[in-house]
């Protein structure tokens, strides 16, 4: 028994070490205090986005957010005349989603850009999309939208805790590099910093957001997702150690069952030989 306890402690230690190495330093390349943009997640998780909100699509035609297909969303607040950050977010997201294997944009989930700049136009939008250079027909999986009524922008963004402000001196918006994972009914499930996460994090967040719509064909991915849990402090998914400890001890129980039978046989075999 002591050996087993020792073994368990060792596994635990190794897992913990691995966890320690994986911690990444947040990249900090702006001169504004990044805490200004921090979202108080506890306050905003579960908020429903786009209830009774009319958006304009790529051609400027109005539609209801609630009418989008009933799948999880990656919601990307951005503005289309942005030359740096928004473009980077788009490119990073494109790269991240390339490695999300279990779900496909347009089939398993939707990517929706919404502009928080009331001066954005269809032309600016088209140029932005062209620059992103998306692989296939973008309209299917990736949507680029604007609010129909400029006066709801602030209200809707406040509702999901997204902070941004216009700097007249720099003639740009200051805003965080956040993307939001929404559940199929449009509720905020996760905030992810697109520059600080791996494809695995996006995948896990999406799987978590759609857990109510889970299909049997995705059971393997779903099982894998159970091994992780979201870490609010690091803003990423980390391995959930209790799952492995629980699984290990369950196997230990089954092992004990067979080991005890084996030991008894061994002892009695020896006794019989001595006789």
């Amino acid at each position: 028994m002591r050996k087993i306890a020792w073994l368990m402690a060792m596994t635990l230690w190794v897992v913990l070490l691995g966890d320690g190495w994986a911690i990444s330093k947040p990249t900090d390349n702006s001169d504004i205090d990044p805490t200004l943009f921090r979202v108080d997640e506890q306050k905003f998780l579960g908020v429903k986005f786009g209830n009774e909100v009319t958006l304009l699509d790529e051609q400027g035609k109005p539609f209801q957010f609630a009418d989008l297909p009933n799948r999880p969303f990656v919601l990307v607040p951005a503005y289309y005349t942005c030359d740096g950050a928004c473009f980077n977010i788009g490119i990073s997201l494109k790269e991240l989603l390339k490695d999300v294997k279990s779900l496909e944009a347009g089939k398993g989930f939707n990517v929706v850009f919404v502009s928080f700049d009331k001066n954005d136009t269809t032309e600016g939008l088209t140029k932005f999309v062209q620059q992103l250079d998306l692989p296939d027909d973008p309209i299917r999986g990736w949507r680029f939208t604007r609010f129909e009524q400029p006066d709801v922008i602030k209200r809707e963004m406040d509702k999901i805790g997204y902070k941004f402000f216009w700097s007249p001196a720099d003639r740009t918006f200051f805003h965080p590099t956040l993307i939001l994972i929404l559940s199929p009914e449009g509720r905020v499930a996760r905030y992810l910093n697109v520059l600080n996460v791996t494809p695995k994090d996006v995948e896990l967040a999406l799987l978590e957001a759609k857990s109510s719509q889970f299909k049997p064909s995705e059971s393997l991915d779903y099982l894998v997702s159970l091994c992780y849990s979201y870490n609010f402090k690091e803003g990423r998914y980390t391995l959930s150690i209790p799952v492995f400890v629980g699984l290990g001890s369950f196997l230990l129980g089954i092992g004990l069952l067979f080991a005890s039978l084996g030991i008894y046989r061994l002892i009695h075999h020896r006794k019989n030989i001595r006789k």
Partner: peptide, 27 residues
């Protein structure tokens, strides 16, 4: 063994400052 493991993790969380079941730290 599963119960024993679960309560042991509880003990670690309570007295050794681990965060197995603390959502703020990935639990």
């Amino acid at each position: 063994p599963v119960l024993a493991a679960a309560v042991t993790l509880l003990l670690f969380d309570r007295y050794l400052g681990t965060h197995f079941f603390d959502p703020a730290n990935g639990g």
